[in-house]
Write a protein that binds this DNA or RNA. Structure first.
Lengths: 334, 334
DNA sequence: CTGAAAGCGCTTACAG
DNA sequence: CTGAAAGCGCTTACAG
């Protein structure tokens, strides 16, 4: 009721026009291109607008411009703390542009992700896919509809924002080497994750160059439970250190190892990726490769803005990674 | 470029109409009210729409209906893991309704919150304020514009979704009483937080009825740092147990106590609220009052939908709380 | 500098 | 059941 009333009485530019004794088109100009109009007229129009409590109807403008002012963000798992800062960074740049961030969580499920992406794409000007599990083909198909930016994923020549991997991994491998580790394992993330492949391949290359061996140990899911479940396989492998695809897996390794009576870092060293919330609160606190997720979120929005504007997708700065050494790594003991 | 081309070629109902040999109004009906139209005509229209890859332009529809299909959610701190499940619940119900969730983070700042609320309100049909730090007056002013639902906050007769507090607190107090605690403290949250006041008052009432004393200890901010900073005051107070406004504060207490050489739960018992991510990973794991945040998020969206539809704001079910006993509580030792 | 008019893509009474 | 027309609130060439 009240609602209805409010809606129907919302003042339009025509109300302002009447009040100020000008045409609606003049009101539109006064409000949108300050300075291009007689300043006394403009003043009168603004006064009328203020008095009426006028607010632009964004739908009407959108219908004109074809642009909604919305940017969509789909991430693989919003309960993964790694995305906190990414979302904050994306939010900040989006708000600064006077736009709005739409956002959905695919819960590590391809169908949910595709569904959410399609749904959001209809009401947004473009889409950011974070840690997408979609196939390249699916992503390309989305990009036919509207601009798409991939985050921590590279697809054909779509614009992307990715964190640098080399530096952090390099530091991690050197750290392990200095502690005397020779046989290490990589606990894998989802096979559909581009970043999983990237971390794995850089780790292997780096370790080989130091004469270390890296065996892959598969995990079921990139979660704490996935890490716990992998503990027996890690133990059986005989490695002295394991690098996990992400911190959630590493958390699970730590928990599972404790339950199994495996001493970390005495018997096994553990390194994660991301430096998520809680990594420094555990016992032992986790050694992990941190990347600057906030910058990544900002870079993603900037790339999307450029894509929407039709500008070429210059590769943005890739936020640097670095190793944060804590208590979960120690000397190798064979 | 490509962008421009895509946009301008997006098929409209007029393209479908032409292809199917009917009027645009018929297309609109066929697509929106299936069954109300000659089934052969409808079939032809759908076929044409499919062939053209037609997608409804939501802005055009919005301009008609005055509704955007967007629900806005503003929360006090999105890096607080307590909101994970709330957002997921809200997201699920929103998506189910074919709507979209807009979302912003106020970073515990009143100005940022007000700004975000106003910004989102213009492009959404209604607003959910989670753990708002705004004044009642500010919230009422927002509610003049569009429907507003408060979450874990009660304002005048605005619709709200709140978690039940009594059961969990009752269990917590009984738990402490059974462990022999007589003098306990409440580590406060933000004074602008309604839920802070609520937890405090229920705790005091419950404790008094058991002959326990509760002193209030102020925290600067409801974060881990805020908890750490409070440790000296907690220690000086001589209490044997402290209940913190939220788990982040409790995390900080645990950390700070360890650094100060205070044994938890040997010398001091600690209880939090929320059961956030990590609560069971700490050493000792945290005893805490859990509420079902997912239900809360769902209830908030349902309440908002009702408010938008102009239905009376019946108080929704209040998700129950319960005490999760872990390792941070133990017998009182005076 | 300003106004009249057309149009963005859809929906919805109003006729037939 | 279907069509022609008006209208949602704004912007933007096009004239003056």
């Amino acid at each position: 009721m009240t609602e209805r009333t409010r809606r129907s009485t919302a003042p339009t530019i025509y109300d302002i026009a009447e009040k100020a004794g000008v045409a609606a088109s003049t009101v539109s100009r006064a409000l949108n291109k300050p300075g291009r109009i007689n300043s006394e007229t403009e003043r009168r129009i603004r006064a009328a607008a203020d008095e009426l409590g006028y607010r632009l109807n964004p739908m009407a403008r959108s219908l004109q411009s074809g642009l909604t002012g919305n940017f969509a963000l789909v991430m693989s798992d919003m309960t993964n703390p790694v995305y906190f800062d990414l979302v904050r960074g994306a939010e900040r740049v989006t708000a600064e542009a006077g736009c709005t961030l739409l956002f959905a969580d695919s819960q590590e499920n391809v169908d949910v992700e595709l569904d959410a992406a399609q749904r959001l794409l209809r009401v947004a000007d473009g889409l950011m896919l974070v840690g997408s599990r979609l196939s390249d083909e699916q992503i390309v198909a989305l990009a036919e509809l509207k601009p798409v930016v991939t985050v921590n994923r590279l697809v054909a020549d779509l614009p992307a924002a990715t964190a640098e991997v080399e530096v952090g991994v390099h530091e991690a491998v050197r750290h392990l080497a200095e502690l005397g580790h020779r046989d290490i394992a990589y606990l894998t993330g989802p096979s559909a994750s581009w970043m999983n492949g990237r971390r794995h391949e850089v780790l292997v290359a780096d370790a080989l160059s130091r004469g270390m061996t890296v065996r892959a140990i598969e995990s079921d899911s990139p979660t704490i439970d996935g890490g716990r479940a992998a503990v027996p396989r890690v133990a059986a492998s005989g490695v002295t250190a394991v690098v996990a695809f992400n911190d959630l897996l590493a958390f699970g390794l730590l928990q599972g190892a404790r339950d199994a009576g495996i001493d970390v870092p005495g018997t096994l060293s553990v390194i994660g990726f991301d430096d998520i919330f809680g990594a420094d609160l555990l016992t032992p606190p986790l050694t992990t490769v941190r990347s600057h997720m906030r910058s990544l979120g900002e870079a993603a929005v900037v790339a999307l803005q450029r894509a929407i504007a039709g500008e070429p997708g210059a590769d943005s700065d890739r936020p640097a990674t670095k190793l944060i050494v804590r208590g979960s790594t120690g000397p190798a003991t064979d």
